[in-house]
Design a protein around this nucleic acid. Structure first.
Lengths: 338, 338
DNA sequence: CTGCAAAATGTAACCGATAACATCTTTTAC
DNA sequence: GTAAAAGATGTTATCGGTTACATTTTGCAG
């Protein structure tokens, strides 16, 4: 790999001239420019951008902390991040952290060690060392999707509580009174918020909250299936199951069908995320649409603003949701079943 | 951010001693070591790894060219790559190339410009500039999943032809004679190979190939749905539809159900990839399992071998597939329908 | 043709670490 | 006690660019 010095020698100029030819061509005379260009072409010179980044102190790299890249929803967010980053000349370093605090702390060190400029965190966890907490300055991080409550991070989120409330209201309006909820992991604020929205709606409708209708899941198909198994075995089973994501909803639908029950005839099912598969499920799944790509895009743009000092105070962007009504939800069965 | 010089000053030693304290502690006396460590702790010194990488000429970064990160199968491959890379001290720079040659060429430049050490390409395209083609040396690239025929790239693949043949034989053994195939994009070698396997099986069984039963798709749910729409409208419709991936199969199933036909009673459907959703489909999908994570893992390991000069000649790794028989395929309907 | 401003180009410090080599100090052996 | 070996530490060039500042060349007015 040839260096700028070799190019300079071959063109019979100084390294500064070569650098200028590349950076500010108008500061170099046309003759010289041509000569330098020839040398560059001949040697196949490619500037070592590692050297440039080292000197400039800017890496143009953003780190994305993703709990699971093999997740349909996150994949869309990643797509959004990747595209926004690329369009602004940044690279996206993707980390599959499996929601592990230690791994995330290690990833955050990429920033400390000047290997990356900033972090986009999709989980509610601050990976920066506690001593960095002291400072009032904005840390070079943006929190998206599942947000942590820290005033120093710009965040991109969705009103999960309102969304869950809206979906629950949809179910209530269909006559459902025993509505189960399949939650995500306890540790996730998303779960807390969506559960709160569910409770809001029940209370507003004067319905009581039945603990036995709350099931824990982990956002996987299998956990939705398991949750449904539990719910169907209840002496007084629910007429609707609201799952905190589409994967669990599809897992639950599988179980309900296997049990010989009809959806939505016997049991209505609702999800959250509106992944591509949900429109093709049997029956097509009623769910909450989230602008996943936009989450990623917005997060990246916010982070770049922080890095450029454009954002002085951490702001919170709330993206819109939409209730998508499909055929998996319908009128509650008559009381004969209850 | 403090530098090694500041640490040296505070500890009253030279920069070399600080460097040694970090790299080869046994070459430094215990007293000094303690003093240096104190200075490091006090200043919160973190070595600038950008400087290290610049000097060493190794970035410890691998670039992954992924056609679509928002794809369930690729997401698994990415997971495998990410984990293998991390365990060997490499970072994975993920690029969502949308199968665009130009974007991929740009990504390959990351290697030229010393921003990355190597490339993992999941698509059949050589992103390196033609002039680099001249050399006999192995380019720092590994080709996985969909492979290009170039002797200089180690490759990780699956015998797609044999897999498609096996699936087609499964359908034939169930009595199917009119078996449709929903292909991927024309440009994809995967499509060519899977189609060849399908034809192999038909020929071996003495069946003729009916062009009207071949549909083009693009690996999306929607294209599977469209293909099924076309196939169902044929005057002499097929009794089985073999889709080149699970997404298309699930799209096709949706259409078949909507048409009021039974799966597999009227039409059997088979996919390829064994994504998580296929086990939860209605009915659960018969498909070919590919070790997706292993694809990623193997590709990364091969690439690191190339980078370390351990691999002298490009090798080809063929991973195993497995026919997963579920309920979406069954005996062909009696000739009453045909 | 001279003089001076503007344009073009060159010189060298710098970014932050590493490591070869030089130098200084402490053991060890006789 | 001293020489040689071993151990500890320091000095400095280096990686490949960028850029402030210095210097040279060019252009144009007078």
């Amino acid at each position: 790999m040839s260096t700028i010095r070799e190019v300079a020698d071959r063109a019979g100029v100084s390294v500064a001239t070569v650098s200028r030819t590349l950076q500010q061509p108008d500061r170099v005379s046309p003759k010289t420019r041509v000569r330098v260009q020839e040398a560059i072409d001949h040697l196949g010179y490619k500037p070592n951008l590692m050297a440039v980044k080292f000197r400039s102190g800017k890496t143009q790299v953003l780190v994305a902390l993703v709990p699971t890249v093999a997740n349909v929803f996150f994949a869309r967010v990643i797509k959004g991040m990747q595209e926004a980053a690329a369009s602004q000349g940044y690279s996206l370093l993707l980390m599959n952290t499996m929601g592990n605090d230690e791994i995330e702390r290690n990833c955050a060190k990429l920033v400390d060690t000047s290997q990356a400029d900033g972090v986009i965190q999709l989980r509610a966890f601050n990976p920066f060392a506690p001593d960095q907490f002291q400072s009032e300055a904005l840390l070079p991080m943006v929190n998206a999707c599942e947000i942590v409550d820290d005033a120093r991070f710009p965040t991109v989120t969705l009103d999960n509580r309102a969304a869950a409330k809206a979906m629950t209201e949809h179910l209530i309006s269909l006559g459902h009174r025993r509505i189960a909820m399949v939650k995500g992991p306890q540790s996730s604020p998303l779960t807390r918020d969506r559960l709160a929205g569910y409770e809001d709606a029940l209370k507003a409708a004067g319905l009581s909250i039945d603990e036995s209708l709350l099931c824990a899941g982990d956002f996987t198909l299998a956990s939705g299936y398991r949750a449904a198994t539990t719910l169907l075995s209840l002496p007084n089973r629910p007429t609707a199951i609201f799952c905190e994501n589409d994967e669990m909803a599809m897992g639950a639908m599988r179980k309900v069908r296997e049990a010989g029950l009809s959806i939505p005839g016997d049991i209505s099912i609702a999800g959250f995320d509106n992944i591509a598969f949900s429109a093709y499920a049997e029956p097509p799944l009623t769910t909450i649409a989230q602008p996943a790509e936009e989450f990623g895009e917005t997060a990246v743009n916010l982070l770049i603003d922080v890095l450029n000092g454009k954002t002085k105070r951490a702001i919170k962007v709330i993206l819109p949701f939409e209730v998508i009504t499909r055929q998996s939800t319908g009128p509650a069965p008559t009381t004969a079943n209850l």
